[in-house]
Design a protein around this nucleic acid. Structure first.
Lengths: 222, 222
DNA sequence: GGCCTTGTTGTGCAAGTGTATAAATAGCCT
DNA sequence: AGGCTATTTATACACTTGCACAACAAGGCC
């Protein structure tokens, strides 16, 4: 066997394709989130991330000043996607405010928002928020955005019921409802198999309606 | 200046005291929690932990098989302290069930249970729970213990109000109330300065009583 | 086709990691 | 007081980490 004209030289430099900046940054951010979800912040090394993204480690420094900035951008992207998904459940034309609120709760307590991987990411990053102002700010913005959406729907619901409520009361309702959704979301993510399908959403809707003092709706087959 | 008879030889071996096993393990676990809270899992190296505990790194291996076991024991200890503190708020003699429930909510939504450091630890470890069965088990045990306590008080409250409730309904109440407390706890830990003193507890009590369908109690000065 | 820009690779480095193990000494027992 | 033992220190080691930088080649432009 003559080894002349070897088509795969041993010390061949790796082939690569040039990608657009936006695409590469997204890929790197996605790879970062994957690694953090699977191995935690400690296991998410630049080399692991690069491997996941299909590039070599050095390239990361071409798009991000350092690892910290990459992580911060990844978290910002995560928070953005989470709140975006949650809010998407609110855009329902021709539905009563109460129906929209119920749909909102249901959407937030089922897949894909109830998700172990996302919870893992959420918790991992939030654990560093008290030490990293950038993470803290990213979280707070997402949180307040979410709560404001809740407050808006609650206002609509109460208006439709012709109940007047002052600003402070409205804020309290929003805080409580936000807490109910968050708390149930955590339980669902951590121990989803403990609850039957739709159970969390049912608990959530009942709790939210009780908080707002809405009379129980009768089931259609009761 | 003659340097003869130096009382502090340059290459002196560090002085140390022998401590009881229990004491050393506790110190190491506490140091571990401190480091994780401050620097995260990545920043909590054996050397950092040892420094915090006032010993050298090698000693850790004398008490723990490896770093992983140390972290697991630290998390178990944390969960134990958290649930212990929370349950402590329930031991009130001569108080009505409803008062005990309110006191329970209040205790869980104020210092020392509302605490940034504890939250940071909770989130950091929980972020790894989906990948580490030992952490997951430690969490689940603490969570179920907590929820069972809630369920017991709820049963007492409803019994005192002479309301009969089946098992499933009781469980749902416990899940919802647990979610309310968890959700508000998180908000308080992450953004304590957004709420005035006692505000979270007030929101929590109202939400919990609404969930149970208890008539609003009139304020004493109203 | 050939050049030039720049996205991409590969290598190197100093610092830090967890673990293993030998050497030392603190403090109890007699 | 003096030895014994187990706690503690100190050092070594192989490995990983984030970062810096030089070499390279992909693909647009003329």
């Amino acid at each position: 066997m003559p080894d002349a004209a070897d088509p795969a030289p041993m010390n061949a430099r790796r082939k690569f394709r040039r990608e657009g900046e936006e695409r590469r940054r997204q890929d790197l951010i996605d790879a970062t989130l994957d690694c953090v979800a699977e191995y935690g912040l400690q296991g998410a090394s630049l080399r692991t991330i690069a491997l996941r993204a299909g590039v070599t480690a050095g390239l990361i420094r071409h798009y991000f000043p350092g690892k910290e900035e990459l992580l911060q951008e990844a978290y910002t992207a995560l928070v953005g996607r989470m709140t975006e998904q949650a809010k998407a459940a609110l855009v329902m034309e021709d539905a009563s405010p109460r129906q929209r609120l119920a749909a909102f709760v249901t959407a937030n307590l089922n897949a894909p928002i109830i998700d172990q991987r996302v919870f893992s990411l959420w918790a991992t990053f939030l654990g560093r928020a008290s030490a990293d102002p950038t993470l803290a700010r990213a979280h707070r913005e997402g949180y307040l955005g979410f709560r404001n959406e809740v407050e808006a729907v609650v206002a609509e619901v109460l208006a439709a019921e012709q109940r007047k409520t002052d600003e402070s009361e409205l804020r309290h309702h929003a805080i409580a409802i936000n807490a109910i959704i968050d708390g149930l979301w955590i339980e669902g993510c951590l121990a989803g198999e403990m609850f039957s399908s739709g159970e969390l959403a049912a608990i959530g809707i009942k709790a939210v309606e009780a908080e707002l003092g809405l009379a129980q709706e009768r089931g259609e087959d009761q």
